[in-house]
């Protein structure tokens, strides 16, 4: 995945079954953000892999004051990339098990 400067990692073991999963997001490289970033630390949140959209969660982070509106796309992309990887891993696990 592209280095967006925003890191998103699993915040729990993925059992491959749960639709909602815990993620943790933090800024690794503030220079990649357009807006001024207030260092708040890592943000832990849950994300529903089946029913949620990364960009919507990114918008909620903006509205909660973690990021500025100009960075919503980069945050959304960072979440979307991680979610895609989690889904890909799950699919691969299922297909290798068959």
């Amino acid at each position: 995945a592209e280095d967006t400067g925003v890191r998103v990692e699993l915040n729990e073991e993925d059992d491959g079954k749960k639709s909602s999963i815990a993620l943790k997001l933090w800024v690794e490289d503030t220079k990649k953000l357009k807006g001024k970033y207030k260092d708040t630390g890592a943000i832990e949140f849950s994300f529903d892999l089946e029913n949620e959209v990364a960009e919507v969660v990114a918008q909620e982070m903006v509205e909660s004051g973690f990021f500025l509106d100009c960075d919503v796309k980069i945050v959304g992309k960072s979440i979307r990339d991680r979610v895609a990887l989690i889904k890909w891993r799950r699919e691969r696990t299922v297909s290798s098990g068959n």
Binding site: R7, D29, G41, I43, E44, E60
Partner: peptide, 27 residues
């Protein structure tokens, strides 16, 4: 504790915690 909780109006809970030091990108 260094953790803080922010609840968005949509109901999502964000928990702020320290960045894992070992995982910070080396500059």
């Amino acid at each position: 504790s260094a953790t803080a909780q922010v609840v968005h109006s949509a109901g999502r809970r964000f928990i702020v915690s320290p960045v894992p030091e070992a995982r910070l990108k080396e500059q």
